[in-house]
Design a binder for these strands. Structure first.
Length: 317
DNA sequence: GGAATTTGACCCTA
DNA sequence: TAGGGTCAAATTCC
């Protein structure tokens, strides 16, 4: 199981998770306060930023967690080797006059990476493809993308690969955070339900809503293809199960946000934990109540609300 | 015409 | 030395 090797690293991992989850809870509380105050509701930039921050906190936590838990097919990252040289600076053969920067890279070894799975390659950021490789023992090629703002200094890159067991899904591995402003652009990501960035909770008037669940997932939260075509009967069944769970989650979210009475409802984003991951988590010692049919939300609630008891939730640390 | 993608070559890491 | 990550010229797209 690719767990970090020392007690100190486990403690550090746990600390990072707690920090990120607390940050997310705090930001969610601020967002609730913001939305409950009609005088502040007209401030979309604030709400948007808070929603982005919440999303980021959970992404970070899942990234930290996944670095310790081998969950399903996702291959999770690699611990920072700490300081190998990044560029040899050497170039042996190059035609005269040709600037040769080849070889100026290091093999991926960074803690600043995380994995997502999604039914779409899109994630709302501007990427430029710079390579594609056939990978040994992999049916599908791996595509390499970097931020379009690379030359402004943004070091964000990602690798996208179809999932062998579920080819309608893409596994995306991100490396380095955006240092450009790219991730903060595009208000539609929040204010409209946009399949391009459905991870973000969208707030808009009910009549403008499209309830199609479209969000990709940050591993290990799973979402089925929203289009519904090319789905087997089993997949259709899974989808309707997920939709039922989504409905329950939506009610609980609205209760948490205090939005129901105001008629101001978020476009719900499906955050369903895959059954396989539920089993993984259960086998790791985490059990939710037997009448709990919405494992996704409850799992997350426990992570957020019972941080003091995190040792019981993640005894493997 | 500029931006994005494709693709073969290069070269580092394991 | 094989595999994987990146480069950059050629090609395609808008």
């Amino acid at each position: 199981m690719g767990c970090l090797g020392t007690e100190n690293l486990h403690a550090e991992t746990k600390r990072l998770m707690v920090v990120e989850l607390l940050k997310g809870r705090d930001t969610a509380t601020r967002l609730r306060a913001l939305l409950q105050d009609p005088r502040r509701r007209q401030d979309p930039v604030s709400a948007e930023q808070l929603a982005v921050d919440i999303f980021r906190s959970f992404s970070e936590s899942l990234s930290v967690l996944s670095s310790c838990v081998d969950v399903g097919s996702a291959q999770i990252p690699v611990v920072d080797s700490g300081g190998s040289s990044s560029c040899s600076g050497e170039s042996k053969k190059k035609p005269a006059g040709v600037k040769d920067r080849r070889g100026c890279y290091k093999r991926r070894r960074t803690a600043d990476s995380w994995v997502t799975e999604s039914s779409t390659m899109e994630d709302g950021c501007a990427w430029r493809k710079y390579g594609q490789k056939v990978i040994l023992n992999s049916e599908y090629p791996r595509c390499y993308y970097r931020c379009t703002h690379k030359y402004e200094g943004c070091k964000a890159t990602k690798q996208v690969e179809r999932i062998k067991e579920d080819p309608i899904m893409y596994q995306t591995t991100y490396f380095n955070k955006h240092t450009c402003k790219e991730t903060l652009r595009a208000p539609h990501l929040i204010l409209d339900l946009d399949p391009i960035e459905p991870n973000l909770i969208s707030f808009q008037a009910p009549e403008a809503q499209d309830h199609t669940p479209t969000n990709p997932m940050i591993h290990p939260v799973k979402q089925e293809s929203y289009k519904g075509d090319n789905l087997s009967e089993d997949q259709d069944q899974d989808l309707s199960d997920d939709q039922a769970k989504s409905s329950l989650l939506q009610d609980q979210w609205q209760e948490f946000m205090g939005l129901e009475s105001s008629g101001y409802k978020p476009v719900w984003t499906t955050m369903i934990m895959s059954s396989s991951y539920q089993e993984e988590v259960a086998s790791a010692g985490f059990h939710h109540s037997s009448d709990d049919q919405s494992a996704g939300l409850h799992g997350l609630d426990l992570e957020v609300d019972q941080l003091a008891d995190i040792d019981n939730i993640f005894p493997l640390f």
